[in-house]
Nucleic acid binder design. Structure first.
Lengths: 226, 226
DNA sequence: ACATCAAGTAAACACTGTATACTAAACACC
DNA sequence: GGTGTTTAGTATACAGTGTTTACTTGATGT
């Protein structure tokens, strides 16, 4: 009786629950998620699910974690489509992948960057580290692109307020990245994130007509001039 | 029996309901909102509320509309703190007001730019026009600042893709604004919106340390160099 | 004085997440 | 092999939700 066997079955059930939850949200929106509906779909009673997740919030937190990781995986996959000798192209690919993932997984995106569930507030101590992975990936690529001289940082944007610079330095230090690169990353992140968020909420499309082209141009401008 | 009297009382009740809803959300998060709890607070039975709102979704939609208008009002109030001869300063004030309002009304901000309610999807045909008011305000100020020569548009950013340019032209035409100004507005909107959204979700503060300074510098860079 | 109508209520329906108590099967151990 | 313990699951119940239906008031218009 390999103990790993029973563990594997336990994790399979956890995954079945998460899969069912995702399908349910895909069908009825991020909040049309119900423990009892999951139980019906899996042909068990509702309380049985409590063997695998202590409550609904824990299930949602697990889904959010998965979402963050899936997005980060998508960024890394985009990075790998190009050789490391072309970090600038990698950066562009990663930024485009960010939007592509958001559009192809709108529910997950809302789940991780919205506040979708009744009474649920994502615990910052779990979401922030998870989101940090994205920043690490973008930072890593940006750093390589800058080191290779493939991108330049805008002069104006290097005038970082002292209070900001101090904290950025603390964060950048363990990565061996410069404060300017990290700052540029944060600014870039806010830009692409805002564009995607507004697009998903339907605010940009009616104005710009072709949100894909709008976004690509935004990304190109971002890479070209910081 | 002035008919306006009974109408006024009807609207007072509607406002009482909305006020109670807002207090409830402030206390228990955007989704801790319950028709029955509102009814308890107003000392009426739950079905009585259906005289004033056909269902919960309608109430939420009303709250969202109010939120959009309150944000737009805040932008206009900021605009009025400065004389129209200084549109550049007005623009800066409005952009800072955007963040200030979001921070002082986090629930409303999540309500209008998140997807907070079980099963509720904001009807785009009502939210989009409401959000458009913000864009109109920012566009108006930007247009005046540009006309007065107080801001410049970045060359790179005027290379607008044809598909985007076509739609922007259709939107800008009735306002008598140039495509470039509208495009700059959209880009600016995505930047400040993304920064605020990430800040509210706790993603920027741990990295930049001083989100207020980070944001102000972002706004200054935005105004100075487009 | 009477009919009409608006506002509100009580009761019920179909849900939800969750806690408690219990059952049935699998396991370790002497 | 029988015994105690653990595990997975169930049935039931509780408190809460939005919403519908049917009914009761009290005020209004004629």
């Amino acid at each position: 009786m390999p103990r790993s066997r029973v563990v594997a079955e336990y994790e399979k059930m956890q995954n079945d629950i998460k899969t069912s939850a995702r399908r349910q949200m895909a069908a009825h929106g991020t909040a049309g998620l119900s423990l009892r509906a999951i139980a019906r779909e899996l042909d068990v009673s509702a309380p049985a699910l409590y063997r695998y997740f202590p409550n609904l919030d824990a299930l949602i937190t697990a889904l959010i974690l998965d979402g963050f990781n899936a997005l980060a995986d998508a960024l890394e996959a985009a990075e790998r489509t190009l050789p490391p000798t072309e970090p600038r192209a990698q950066l562009r690919a990663a930024l485009l992948a960010y939007r592509a993932w958001a559009l192809s997984h709108p529910i997950d995106f809302q789940l991780i960057y919205g506040n979708p569930i009744p009474g649920y507030v994502a615990p910052a101590e779990v979401t922030v580290p998870a989101a940090t992975r994205q920043l690490e990936i973008l930072g890593r690529i940006t750093d390589r692109a800058f080191a290779a001289g493939q991108i330049v940082l805008r002069r104006e944007l290097t005038e970082i307020p002292p209070s900001v610079r101090a904290q950025l330095a603390r964060i950048a230090e363990p990565y061996g990245t410069s404060v300017e690169v990290l700052h540029t990353c944060m600014l870039g992140w806010t830009r692409i994130h805002g564009a995607i968020q507004l697009e998903l909420f339907g605010h940009t499309p009616p104005v710009v007509g072709d949100p894909a082209a709008f976004y690509e141009q935004l990304v190109d401008a971002l890479i070209e001039t910081g």
